[in-house]
Design a protein around this nucleic acid. Sequence first.
DNA 1: CTCAATTTGTTCGTATGTATG
DNA 2: ACATACATACGAACAAATTGA
Lengths: 256, 256
Amino acid sequence: MTNGNRPKTTASDTLSRIPRYLQVATALRQRINSGQWAVGEKIATLEQLENEFQVARVTIRQAVDILQQEGMLKSEQGRGTFVIQSPTAARWLQLATDWDSLIRPIKRNTLKHLPIEQHYMPKIAEGEGTPAESYAYIYSLQLRDDEPYGLARVHVAQDIYDKAVEDFQTRIALGVVAELEELSISRAHQTLSIGSADVYAAVHLRVPFGAPIVEARCIVNDADDRVIYHGEIVYRGDVVRINIELVNEDRKVSLD
Amino acid sequence: MTNGNRPKTTASDTLSRIPRYLQVATALRQRINSGQWAVGEKIATLEQLENEFQVARVTIRQAVDILQQEGMLKSEQGRGTFVIQSPTAARWLQLATDWDSLIRPIKRNTLKHLPIEQHYMPKIAEGEGTPAESYAYIYSLQLRDDEPYGLARVHVAQDIYDKAVEDFQTRIALGVVAELEELSISRAHQTLSIGSADVYAAVHLRVPFGAPIVEARCIVNDADDRVIYHGEIVYRGDVVRINIELVNEDRKVSLD
DNA sequence: CTCAATTTGTTCGTATGTATG
DNA sequence: ACATACATACGAACAAATTGA
């Protein structure tokens, strides 16, 4: 009755069900990524980490072992544990806050079509515009430097699609829509929300299951307020960055 | 030698070490949140889920049990398992794309101060403005309806802080800054990125460890381009929604 | 009403993973 | 490294409730 393992769980949280050594490993990984522990630097001793995370020494070691396998840490007996590499060199995907910056980066990116499992009509809510009679459906993976960053389910009004079939088959749809000359766009909006990768998204975007993702829903209307483009795109969370200019010199703030 | 448990892990992924039943629970939760399984509807049978996820019956049950505890599902013997509630309708936290919408919702929300573990100076990059001489540091939990949604590390220029000490101690700092009359704000910007909850964030925001979060960094400058506010706020990912108006009727799109 | 099919609920044995001291 | 305790996961069998023919 030595009360061997009992984790000091505070509750029945989902949190507490995740293995302790993974929690610690994640925490350490974040400190390295965030630069709190720089490359070459010695990290806290096992004893300090024991105290900080309130877990047994062996558990800390398990966590450190994982990061050693990942090539981020290197332990040396008698000296300590050192950061030998940080994979941060992150390449950010700037998510758009205006039309031009939405279109610009798209042009360089490529796409790979995926087999369509199931056709469906876009769900268009009240006030988002009038749906088109029929839509062409495109299911594709968006790539940059051969690295997948987005999984796109796109609907384009059939008549628009027919105007440039080849373009729509080889390029990113939103870019094609933007360039159609005879088309007048009255409005476009985008809603972003945050989620976790399901099995499909994880496989295609090459991220672990449950990894954070951004779900973007983008709607473009023509002059008659008809929804000509409806895109649901899942982005890898780790490449997304959103930059918002709230106030500029020339635009004074209205208080209250 | 019945090969009892061996998970069919494809690799040494960190996330494949996460318990299977939690992975399944996450997948199910997503289907409910996304409306794929509507409220009142019967979900797939245990047997179907067994096949789909390639796990044992008991493992599916564990996942379903979790969602039952969360009040999303209800199983009835002989009938099936039903969605009885979707938390989706709930509570979106509209993240700001302009100053007014940043300030407005803040006013209703409350905050709870947390003990400060460690003081530090905000890291202000080139071009973000000139740092103030000294900052007051506030570490707090942001609440709405007694539900935590954000974990804030905020620095306010000391002289600004001194002008309304009591306000800063009881209300959300950005709201106080916005209302200071003698203050002129020249610019403000916010950068959002996506991450996973570490242990601290998970505990405070009451989300599972590793749950998606939004890391917001908001900087406000006064008329002299001095950084008077620097906030690093971690939001629960599941309450964040960002709405962006890309094009309006009155603003024509410039092609190329 | 009975019967069979469907579906959830329960239990057993076993093997391995996690975590402590 | 060890003894210990509990968690995770499998497969299989059986029990109990519901439904529709």
